[in-house]
Write a protein that binds this DNA or RNA. Structure first.
Lengths: 250, 250
DNA sequence: CGGATAGTTGACTACCCTCAAGGTATGTGG
DNA sequence: CCACATACCTTGAGGGTAGTCAACTATCCG
């Protein structure tokens, strides 16, 4: 890992967030960055139970929140892609009940918690944007409970691949109906609540049915309508409509 | 269902929320109530996809958020107990991607969305309280993904019963290590991602092992340490510490 | 070439689902 | 008061999805 004091322009990375803020608000947020860290894959950013004294904003790479059961089993309640805040609730809670780890090499901006609190108090538009992001996380988590509780492994995996296409496309990371998917099958299993063995077999079913291809970390959706239908994927829960109206109201 | 224009004192019901607000802030919220509805069990308050023009605050009874898969399977991503907001994200989204239904007869306060927006803009303490509630929901959902993905039916059911004890105790609804649990086994299954048949068998295991008793809708935890251990229940994710410090900072 | 990590495959197991029937409690109407 | 309906709970038999364990392969990299 390396720490730098460089302060990249947030607008240069495509954040979910940035399109919802005025240039002025973006500038305020940029000034709050206390630094940017570059971390290699597999690095633990925050451990469960750590004191929460800063927010982390993922600028590039993949990361995840994870939770551990006492027998060591791992569940990933959130996949983090470029533009996502890793730990919004650090604004409110003293301690986090989940860990954060990188899945690829990542660049992560660090924002001291007290600075962000001051900024949200002074800039209602920014507060609204952060609140909106938290509500979207909530909505995604609800959909994931439906996938975990009531859908088959095949549907669940397909649903995840659909969701990632939509989310990464908002981050400008989709070309030709495909994207880089740098997760191991074990990590996919930790998202889906499956073992890596079963993820492997389920991926093969999707491949054999001509719905996707996955070679060398690049996933392509070959039959979007069929995959959507199979997975019962309805993207409304991602709230792609944005929040422009909301931040005006605030 | 019946609508009344009565405006009960929020302090008279024990809300998670109320202890975190000043008397003044509570009064502001009470003035925002546009009415209180009394609904019988099994009444749908909000349907998936409905326009969100007001917030609902559950004053008494049990309700839930639910989501439907296209094959009709139902998943309950949130159980709502007295003092819970039913649909906090209605503040932000135009439409809800879940439904709300009552599980028992309920009294529900209705707060017009625009009024709440104005109030949160003028009263940062109230905004902070609502934001905090949403973060707790988020935390509960994350824990539920761990239960759904990585724990056995027995652990999951035990975990839910533990969680309800803690939450209901905060709402003043626990006596002698027990509480009224008015859910059918099918509804429990919709929370746990199980069929009612398997919920039945799992309940019997907990009973036979002397961990709980459940007669006529009253659940008693007979061996709290053992149930906690079995279920890997660690209550930190409910953030019982409250938010007093936070609302002062805001 | 050796070692590590990830992906693949096979045989077997088990947890939970499905389908079906029977039991119990409550309420309603004749 | 009894017959009946309804909703919920309980139990049994059988099956399927996903887990476990283990071996093998592929790829990358030093």
């Amino acid at each position: 890992m390396s720490d730098t004091s460089a302060r990249p322009n947030l607008a240069s990375t495509r954040l979910w967030l940035s399109s919802e803020l005025t240039a002025q608000e973006r500038a305020v947020l940029e000034r709050a960055l206390s630094g940017v860290r570059t971390l290699e894959a597999g690095h633990t950013v925050v451990r469960e139970g750590d004191r929460a004294d800063s927010l982390h904003l993922l600028l590039d790479g993949w990361a995840c929140r994870y939770k551990l059961a006492s027998d060591g089993a791992r569940q990933i309640p959130a996949l983090l892609t470029p533009g996502d805040f890793c730990d919004l609730d650090a604004l409110l809670f003293e301690r986090l009940d989940y860990g954060i780890t990188t899945l690829t090499s990542c660049t992560i901006a660090v924002l001291p918690r007290e600075d962000v609190r001051r900024i949200t108090a002074e800039h209602p538009g920014i507060a609204a944007a952060l609140w909106w992001l938290m509500a979207v996380e909530n909505s995604i988590l609800s959909e994931w409970t439906l996938c975990l509780g009531r859908r088959s492994a095949l549907q669940h995996l397909g649903h995840l691949l659909c969701e990632l296409l939509v989310r990464l496309s908002a981050a400008g990371r989709v070309q030709e109906n495909g994207y880089k998917l740098p997760l191991t099958q074990e990590q996919l299993g930790d998202v889906l609540g499956l073992t890596s063995v079963h993820v492997n077999r389920t991926l093969q079913t999707l491949r054999n049915d001509g719905l996707i291809s996955l070679h060398q970390g690049r996933l392509t959706i070959l039959d979007w309508p069929a995959l959507k239908a199979l997975s019962d994927f309805r993207p409304g829960y991602l709230h792609p409509e944005g929040m422009r109206r909301l931040s005006e109201a605030a």
